[in-house]
């Protein structure tokens, strides 16, 4: 298969970016999207025409959350329930023009080309996205019984890989689905109860402070989430946030 690629090139956070056009030829339909970019980079290096295209990637099996490209107007491209590394060229047609951009959101500044800085997500977790359980002294694991449906629902939320597609998909660049997934995961479990009110307040404040937009319930995030995290978690977050805002302040 042959493709024409329009790829966003930007030397660093402060430079002006622009699209550059490249051709790749004889690509196998079983090739992954990132392997196709590897082939392009091999050409660019071999011919010394340009610095190879920088893009984040690591596990290449859809779980580390490191890769994330905006392909033809969709985060992670035109397949459902996959990350960019699991997108295969068989999803395209021979001769296609493909537009490749980084995540576009103010809290995710471009580092170089298609690489963005997602450390804002780490900061939100640091604001309270955990259960304080200092090493040692935990009770026996089966001392805490958790109904299967609760554990399963917590796991559904915990499957978030922190890739940022939800933010990229959102017209407001809201991080609501990411935050809600963590709030939901921990608050569904009995271990997460003692800190639940503080957690939701602190994580939401941090999200606002870092410049993520508001959620207007458009649910583009749910449609594009590679792990298919559900919008119901956002409803749970809102309920908890309201509960702590109008309830007794525990801090």
């Amino acid at each position: 298969m042959n493709f024409t690629l329009h790829i966003w090139r930007q030397a660093d956070a402060l430079s002006q970016g622009r699209f550059e056009t490249y051709r790749v030829e004889h690509i196998s339909p079983d090739c992954s999207f990132l392997e196709m970019l590897d082939i392009l980079n091999g050409q660019l290096v071999g011919d010394s025409v340009a610095h190879p295209v920088c893009f984040d990637n690591d596990c290449r099996e859809g779980i580390c959350g490191m890769c994330g490209l905006y392909i033809n107007g969709r985060p992670h491209g035109n397949d459902d329930g996959v990350t960019t590394c699991q997108l295969h060229m068989r999803r395209f047609s021979d001769g296609d023009e493909i537009w490749v951009e980084p995540w576009r959101a103010k809290p995710f500044p471009v580092v170089r080309d298609l690489v963005v800085d997602r450390s804002a997500f780490d900061k939100i977790i640091q604001a309270g996205g955990y259960i304080s359980a200092t090493t040692g002294g935990a009770p026996d694991a089966n001392a805490i019984l958790i109904p299967k449906h609760k554990a399963d629902e917590a796991m559904d939320a915990a499957a978030c890989i922190g890739c940022g597609a939800c933010v990229a998909a959102c017209k407001n660049a809201s991080a609501m689905l990411f935050v809600a997934a963590k709030v939901s995961h921990l608050s569904l479990l009995p271990q997460g109860q003692p800190e639940a009110a503080d957690r939701v307040r602190r994580m939401v404040s941090k999200m606002d402070e870092l410049g993520f937009g508001s959620c207007t319930n458009t649910f583009a995030c749910e449609a594009e989430c590679p792990k298919q995290i559900k919008r119901q978690h956002i409803a749970r977050l809102n309920r908890q946030w309201i509960g702590q805002a109008f309830g007794r302040d525990r801090k």
Partner: peptide, 18 residues
């Protein structure tokens, strides 16, 4: 024990046990 205390959602059976 440590991981459960941290909220790791291990698989459980219908009794709620691991």
């Amino acid at each position: 024990d440590q991981c459960v205390a941290q909220g790791v959602p291990f698989a459980r059976d219908y009794s709620g046990m691991l």
